[in-house]
């Protein structure tokens, strides 16, 4: 079924889902009892709410958990890596931005020597994407990473229901038992946020923010420094390692925990020297990482435009106008003699 497209009529959506649930572990986007929107296990008979715009945490919670045990130490066996044998988990209802974010994380964690804790988790995920309607916080189709929104199956919303596009072998394995609900079609998929993901190439973003220094300072003044933006960002992957001894000193555990570039501690080195002591420097740094990319991925924008950082900032900060202004300033500088 790979690379073929099918129509799923609206009235078949429910039985399609139920049959899909029957295949095993599945998480869907849903409004939980407390009003929070999260990817979580559906309760009996619950359908995925594909109209929800964004979950609080992106999919990195599955691939790169906030506190992850990576090594355990005992006096007898020394350091032993923790083995992961996660079972298959199907995630149904992933937006293109979150898919693009996974492509980005794959580049970070799987290029070269793959990360031993990311790899097994990544392998166990099957992804069903879905097209969506952006809201005021989204910036896909404009300022967003060019990473592909790859997945196993993608659902395009159409008037009569969904167009189901099978995009991998795993996708076909999932879809074959569901064929009674699917009717093959040649029609091309409708335009969606999945296409033309990024209109701005990284080259256009200036490397030097001096043209917008007053905006930068204004942001730094309003920032609470709480780091919520980075926690919720689907492409923030900074981590720290922490080793905790046991009470009797015979064992220890080492954890990988999320780090945060908004914190003073992020750029502090031994001896107490700090490369980014001022909050403006940290914003500059964040801008660079999100819009210019760095390290091996220099030149690849990492912001996928999901809008979580804006939606989750208690101070309502938004990096986009800063980026837009910087863009404008630089193109202005380029055109003026």
């Amino acid at each position: 079924m790979k690379n073929r497209r099918f129509l799923l009529v609206g009235s078949d959506f429910e039985p399609f889902c139920m049959a899909l649930y029957g295949q095993g572990g599945i998480h869907i986007p849903k409004i939980c009892a407390d009003g929070g929107v999260r990817f979580a296990h559906p309760v009996e008979g619950e359908l995925p709410d594909l109209s929800l715009i964004r979950t609080i945490l992106p999919l990195k919670k599955y691939l790169f958990p906030p506190k992850d045990k990576v090594l355990s130490y005992s006096q007898d066996n020394g350091y032993q890596p923790v083995e992961y044998n996660s079972g298959k988990l199907l995630i149904f209802g992933v937006h293109p931005c979150d898919l693009a974010a996974i492509s980005y994380l794959d580049k970070i964690f799987l290029n070269g020597e793959p990360d031993a804790f990311y790899l097994p988790r990544r392998k166990s995920l099957a992804l069903i994407g879905v097209s969506c309607m952006p809201d005021k916080y989204c910036s896909c189709g404009d300022i967003a990473s060019p990473m592909p929104a790859d997945c196993d199956i993608f659902l395009y919303k159409i008037e009569t229901g969904y167009m189901v596009s099978c995009e991998s072998d795993e996708g076909s394995a999932i879809l074959s038992p569901l064929s009674p609900f699917l009717h093959e079609t040649d029609i091309l998929p409708p335009e969606s946020t999945r296409d033309n993901f990024s209109l701005n190439s990284v080259e256009k973003f200036p490397d030097d923010l001096s043209g917008v220094s007053s905006e930068l300072q204004e942001m730094a003044r309003s920032c609470l420094g709480c780091g919520a933006c980075s926690i919720c960002c689907p492409t923030c992957y900074c981590f720290d390692l922490l080793e905790l001894p046991s009470l009797n000193g015979e064992r220890a555990e080492r954890f990988r925990i999320w780090d945060n570039c908004l914190y003073q501690s992020h750029a502090e080195v031994a001896g107490g020297y700090n490369f980014r002591k001022a909050r403006t420097e940290r914003f500059d740094y964040r801008y660079r990482h999100k819009y210019l990319g760095f390290g091996q991925l220099q030149g690849i924008m990492s912001c996928v435009g999901c809008g979580r950082c804006i939606a989750n900032c208690p101070a309502g900060l938004d990096l986009r106008p800063l980026a837009c202004k910087a863009l404008k300033e630089s193109s202005h500088a380029a055109t003026s003699p």
Binding site: D34, C226, C232
Partner: peptide
């Protein structure tokens, strides 16, 4: 090593909805 994070960060990492915002 004393925690250098915020309660907000822990809170967001637990995927709570924000009581303030």
């Amino acid at each position: 090593i004393p925690a250098r994070t915020f309660v907000c960060a822990d809170c967001r990492a637990r995927e709570n909805i924000c009581l303030l915002a």
